[in-house]
Amino acid sequence: MRIKVGQDMATGLLFAIIGIGALFIGWDYPMGQWTRPGTGVLPAILSGLLVLTGTVLIVKSLASGDSEITGINWMPLALVSFAVVLFGLLIDTTVLNFGIFTVRVPGLGLWLTMAISMTVCALAIRETQWKEYAIFLVFMMVMAWAVFICALGMPINACPTFAECQVCWLVNTPVRKIYEALLWVVR
């Protein structure tokens, strides 16, 4: 008999594997006493129940059939996730620790980060019209800068961290002052 991995089967497997993994990791957590249930009590109960739920799902899928998993958008999934990971990596200087060696990724600042990660996302979309996208990107960059850096004062740079340009700061300050004046009027 050939077993097809359908929706219920896959869900059951996912639950069971995560549950077993959590049981395994949580094995050493102290259980405490009845009066003071320790760190390990709830993880053990929950992962045990999760394994049970997963098993029931697997059995059920074998017994009463399953519906197929269809239409996975592999490319969009990969590209969108990659775009998000890139955003996190590039927005500010990060140090990646691989155990034996470390890699220092310089922060590219808001603008370049946006341009790169949004373009990766745009690659995932079949309907992207690149001319339109370029205008849209510039609009988004200006807007994000005005809202997040000027108005809300998020502690990130618009330009790459290594560029050390002062232009942004020169423009930032008056915009920020206008925003503060507006706030003051409202108050």
Binding site: V80, A83, V84, F87, G88, L89, I91, D92, T94, M114, S117, M118, C121, A122, I125, E127, T128, Q129, E132, Y133, F136, M140, A144, F148, L152, M154, P155, I156
Partner: peptide, 23 residues
Amino acid sequence: YRLLAIAILFFCCIGVYSLNNLA
């Protein structure tokens, strides 16, 4: 939607980042 999707994704990224400034 081809533009909206990109905008929404960007807002998700910057929204999460702005919580604690943690990549």
